[in-house]
Design a protein around this nucleic acid. Structure first.
Lengths: 336, 336
DNA sequence: GTGAAAGCGCTAACAC
DNA sequence: GTGTTAGCGCTTTCAC
């Protein structure tokens, strides 16, 4: 006990070493998996540590190792069901793999750089970006700092950056096929205006497949986003009601806004008068009012692959940038 | 330039000091707001720093200061609309105030302690818990480590822990009043079984107010959660359809599950045959299919107060634990 | 397998 | 207002 009245709860490896009658290096080894130390001393140290309430100071370790296990996660629209599920899965997976997620939510493109700066200052092990903001400047900075960067749902083609996307081409094609199989002779694609987001890949694949299948199609482009985007698309869709179209939205939120408006504001019967299909399979898609057919992307699978990508690059910093594609599946419900 | 081929992007304050012809302390001061340094040297240093691509190493600073600006955020059910919005607002507010949120998502009570341990090891400035898990053990640990702890939406009464809640009593009362005002003579409260969550306060206030207003009431308790909980409550509510009840659910997700099932599976007309009112005002509550009257809790306001609480405790560690109550408002829509 | 010594990059007294 | 000196708590060669 002696002069143990150090400031607050700061029990250091020194204290443990003293109590266990060993050196500080020994204590360090005892808490470093895989280092050469005899089982006997290890348990002796662990016992002393437990009694003292010792916990290794990860900040000190980080300073020494030149790297913390913190992984920066930059996300936009966390407020949105798909993103929320994605971040939920991703952060859990990160923790499971020994990383600590530092979460930075962005509103606009503008803060992104500044936020990245914060992360870089923390000597993060890596950065994962799941946002709509074009992260070009960021990528360069990460590259310069040798910090691994993984882009989720981005189409940007950049050197030394790993990317992960759903199989948007397959998804778009499946959507067209499902609609045609349901008897629709004219297809409509509803998309949002924003540039550089993966939705356009889906839309393009959808339109191309429609063509292949010999049905006509047209596109509606909306500047509003999320549920409101679907609401905004309703008038134009109503104008084409005479052809009982099959409508594909680039996201469930869009589809839900559209479907909800058509059914509950305009008493359109779906799928009798037309079909609607979405993308993502968010929880709300299965709610009774919606019963939305959609293309499912598994957040858990995404999380797993994303973290694997990160681990791989940490281990092999110079390896070729990868571009992972995660499979998608059709979830048939009543709206088609 | 000389022997600047140090490992990777590790430009240190030493390098900057060298280049600017000053001492390392000067560099430190240049990057510490409010420290005494002349504008001239500051700008000189900043210029050199910019040219070198220097960024202060927050890990080293953290080690020295014995405290990082990291704030641990423990959350359950991030997947849920209300929580997602809350975390979105909270993390943004934290960043705005100079903190860095480390996000830990929990599934069950079990991991909570282990996760907290991680945070403590990172010398966090504080911990914010927004989860259903009873954090008693955690609180003690935080207290022992002198780490400020803020509990959001928890009723636990613990020493040296700050709490923040919505005005559940007012909310519950408002719900009863709105229903009675709409002409309902019998009220039903739908609640979830889980213990220690703030929903019971709302429910109790609701029932008490119903009593005061001279209307009868009964409670339905459900073991399922979220949307499914509302679905599960439907049969019992249907049994009481003859009294055209006013139904209050402790959360919007519950209310939405119930309302959606009643309207779309049983063709019940709401509000003609009965009223439904929820709690939280999640985005989905305003969707056309729902048009749900509800009690609104502002995530932004919550975030603001939560961070203020944290800042206050960091500044005055020994001050009396506070118990903040955030106002709620009635949002009238078509379901009542 | 274990201990001694030397830092990781920064800030905080303390002199000047 | 600025430089000097000591650490913050840990890991890590390097001897032994």
């Amino acid at each position: 006990m002696s002069v143990e009245s150090r400031k607050s709860g700061s029990v250091t490896s020194f204290d443990v070493a003293h109590k266990a009658g060993v050196s500080r290096s020994a204590v360090s080894r005892a808490f470093t998996p895989g280092s050469s130390i005899s089982e006997k001393t290890r348990s002796k140290i662990q016992k002393a540590a437990a009694e003292l309430g010792y916990r290794v100071n990860l900040v000190a370790r980080g300073l020494n190792k030149q790297r913390t296990d913190i992984v920066g996660v930059i996300v936009s629209a966390l407020n949105t069901p798909y993103r929320a599920g994605q971040i939920d899965a991703l952060t859990k997976q990160l923790v499971r793999e020994g990383f600590r997620p530092m979460l930075l939510c962005v509103d606009e493109d503008k803060d992104v750089e500044q936020l990245l700066s914060i992360l870089l200052n923390y000597q993060v092990s890596g950065v994962i970006i799941t946002s709509d903001a074009p992260p070009n400047a960021i990528c360069e900075e990460c590259a310069r700092m040798q910090v691994p960067l993984v882009l989720v749902h981005r189409t940007d083609q950049l050197p030394f950056v790993d990317r992960i996307n759903g199989d948007d081409i397959k998804g778009g094609r499946m959507a067209a096929e499902a609609l045609v199989k349901a008897g629709r002779q004219h297809l409509i694609a509803v998309r949002q205006e924003a540039p550089g987001f993966t939705g356009v890949v889906r839309i393009d694949a959808f339109l191309k497949r429609a063509d292949e299948l010999g049905v006509t199609s047209n596109t509606i482009t909306i500047s509003a986003v999320e549920y409101d985007g679907g609401v905004a698309a309703a008038p134009e869709v109503l104008n084409q009601l005479d052809v009982s179209p099959g409508v594909f939205c680039h996201s469930d939120l869009f589809a839900l806004g559209l479907l909800d408006t058509l059914r509950n504001k305009h008493s359109i019967r779906i799928p009798e008068q037309m079909s609607v299909i979405g993308y993502d399979d968010i929880p709300q898609a299965s709610w009774a009012f919606a019963d939305l057919t959609t293309i499912r992307q598994s957040p858990n699978r995404f999380a797993q692959v994303t973290v694997d990508l990160l681990k791989h690059r940490i281990k092999y910093p110079e390896s070729e940038p990868k571009n992972e594609i995660v499979d998608v599946t059709l979830v048939m419900r009543g709206s088609v």
